[in-house]
Write a protein that binds this DNA or RNA. Sequence first.
DNA 1: ACGCTAAGTGAAAACGTTTTCAGATGGTGG
DNA 2: CCACCATCTGAAAACGTTTTCACTTAGCGT
Lengths: 327, 327
Amino acid sequence: MVKIHDVAKLAGVSVATVSRVVNNNERVAENTRVKVEWAIRELNYAPSVLGRNLRTSKSNLLLVLLPSISNPFYTEIINGIEDTAIARGYNILLCETDSNPKREAIYFNLLRNRLAEGIISMDPSVNKNKLNELSESYPIVQCSEYDTESPIPYVTIDSEQAAYDAVTHLIESGHQKIALINSDERFLYARQRRNGYEKAMEAHGLPIKGEWIYHAEQLDFKLGQNAIRKLLQLDDQPTAVFAVSDVYAIGALKEIHRHGKKVPEDIAIIGFDKIIFSDMAFPTLSTIAQPMYEMGCISAEMIMDKINGIAVKSRVLDHQLICRDST
Amino acid sequence: MVKIHDVAKLAGVSVATVSRVVNNNERVAENTRVKVEWAIRELNYAPSVLGRNLRTSKSNLLLVLLPSISNPFYTEIINGIEDTAIARGYNILLCETDSNPKREAIYFNLLRNRLAEGIISMDPSVNKNKLNELSESYPIVQCSEYDTESPIPYVTIDSEQAAYDAVTHLIESGHQKIALINSDERFLYARQRRNGYEKAMEAHGLPIKGEWIYHAEQLDFKLGQNAIRKLLQLDDQPTAVFAVSDVYAIGALKEIHRHGKKVPEDIAIIGFDKIIFSDMAFPTLSTIAQPMYEMGCISAEMIMDKINGIAVKSRVLDHQLICRDST
DNA sequence: ACGCTAAGTGAAAACGTTTTCAGATGGTGG
DNA sequence: CCACCATCTGAAAACGTTTTCACTTAGCGT
């Protein structure tokens, strides 16, 4: 493997000069520069990032923590992160925790081991205590999910307001009996969306029935189907459903069809996230759009700023109601 | 930042001994081991992977090259890769090329820079020449897409046979006019699947009409919709469609509905890949399943073996016909 | 002719590990 | 009491960069 020393020898200069040329950030005489550049080409030299990392104590690697890559909600965010990171010379290590603490520990260690310079956490099931403790020594930001009582900066939307808007949309379409398919209320976003749901119902003088609220433990289509199955067994059946994730909503859509009912005539349904498949469902799914790509970009900017010692502020971005055929 | 030297001092031993304890791979006396372990805990020491990487000339990082993370086909493969890699102490750098040569160049450089030890390429639009050239100096394997005349080992399925099976299934269901929604035939898998389609038609004495074959340039639902729109304008309309990707098939499904036709009564449809949403489509989509998780695991094993100088052989795995409601 | 500045360059240290090699120690058999 | 071996340990080199600091040289004004 050819190293900087070889280039220096061939070019008849010192390694310091080669380094200066490679990082073209110091003044080096024009003719020595061309000599060195020639030698680099000649030997097909590529500097070892291993040596550089050690010397500079930087890895230019970012950790992105997410529960599962198969949730399409994250894909656009990741695109934003990656684009932004690359533009500033960073690369990202995509880490699926599978909500598995052991996995999580492995990834946290990458930070302690200096392999990664910072973490963007999108995992709602992350160990908050560990994250807070880590954030005292290392740069960390949260994206989408966050912790109200932690100093870790975050970028997110106003989930409560978004849920309020979604439910209000259903009410304004004439619905009074509205069900909620929620995820585990361990997660802040689930609690916030439930609050939004309840506030919207109350604001319009509508009753909230416990049996209309379904809790799914994980993010899986099947659970959206289960929810509908339960709801259709009730004596007092809802005429509309607000699902806190498109994934549930699409499962629900499917199950409603299976029962021979029509959307939105018999049951209207609105989802959350505007995942790419929401447009391909039948009928197309009304939903709440989050600016996912932008969230990714901003969280990447934030973590890189934090790494460079720049103070960052949390951001709450705007959401958007997308009315399609399911409502 | 506490380093090995500090631990050594506190424990009253040399750095060599600490290193031995950390890598618990040499015999060190039991009582010095406990002393060192105590000191490590006391100082909350974590070895710097930067120093280690330089010294050992290993980064334990794998590059995974894929065109786009939003294609759900890749997610299961990635799961397989990641699980396998982690089990052997490797981490993966997920790289989206977006079929952009500039991006590709950046990622290839990570290999030349020793940041990554090897590449698993799943990108059909990768620059073959560059990949072949690189593979002479660095460990590379291909997953799913591959190059027939390159010595780079791969893991894949028999796309031609799979396509043959899919089309035969349609024929056996009584269809004679079968359309093909294919991707760009620059890609090997597209050419293979077209061959399978044609062979199945010929084997059953059915005519192949050029107007029944649609080529999509990218992997996007919309193109599945476009395809149907074109096909429904024909005088001689097909009664069944074989789409080389579930993504096209789902778009097609949607567009068929929009035209007031029923699946499978008016038009039957079969996809390819068994992506997670294929089960959520209405009706559920018949498709060809690839052992995606296993493909991920195997390609990870292959690349790590290759890195360690172990010879590896290409693998062709079994596919499976999944009959659901769309046929 | 002399000092002074600016520009360009190189020697060497540093980054934090792992690993080789040799040395120290203690026990054992003759 | 000696020689020998086994076991454990430490000093120091090495990995490939970047960066500091000091040095050389050339150009310039006096």
